[in-house]
Amino acid sequence: MSDQTLFSIFFSAMIVNNFTLALFLGLCPFMGVSARVETAIRMGLANIFVLVLTSLSAWVLNTYILVNAPYLRIISFIIVIASLVQIVEMVIKKVSPVLFKQLGIYLPLITTNCAIFGLAIFQTNRSYDFLQGLTFAVGAGLGLTLALVLMASIRETSELSDIPAIAKGTGLTLIIAGSLSLAFMGFAGLL
């Protein structure tokens, strides 16, 4: 068990060590799916959901199954995450076709989202217990959503500006990300 309080875990994952802006986790959706605010919000929510499930499964795996074989950690985590996303996809399809339609394309993308796997690994490395893991997952998910939404709303406004030709697309996105990361440094030490 880690000594950190739930508050500091939550706040650290969401703001101070923001998954995307400080740890570079979940960059694929950040660069790819962050052109529209609505999409960014949905992607963020889908991520929170899967993050929480992942945290639960990683905890179960660590506590009951991998105790004697920690060297199988990477392989079991990734298999569990891949199947989890598949199951979530199937369940949502059955239960709420509307939601499925909205989330549909994002769910498979989540499997290769480093944030999900990163969460499982970090949670293990820092030996969080059940509740700490959950808090970590929600904090990380909200942090991802925050970064995605900020990026998306900035990109939406910049769409109409006369961006210099060389900066169109990735160049500008990376500079915005850098600026956001600079701004988030203001939260350093806030633990």
């Binding site: 802006l21 030709a165 060389i166 160049g171 500079i175 990300a177 850098g178 600026s179």
Partner: peptide, 25 residues
């Protein structure tokens, strides 16, 4: 110091991409 911080990572890659864009143009 900024370049060893996370923000510097984004900025450096941004600089490289901008430089490549400049040569393309």
């Amino acid at each position: 110091v900024v370049f060893v911080l996370p923000a510097g990572g984004f900025l450096t890659l941004g600089f490289i991409i901008l430089g490549m864009g400049y040569f393309e143009e």
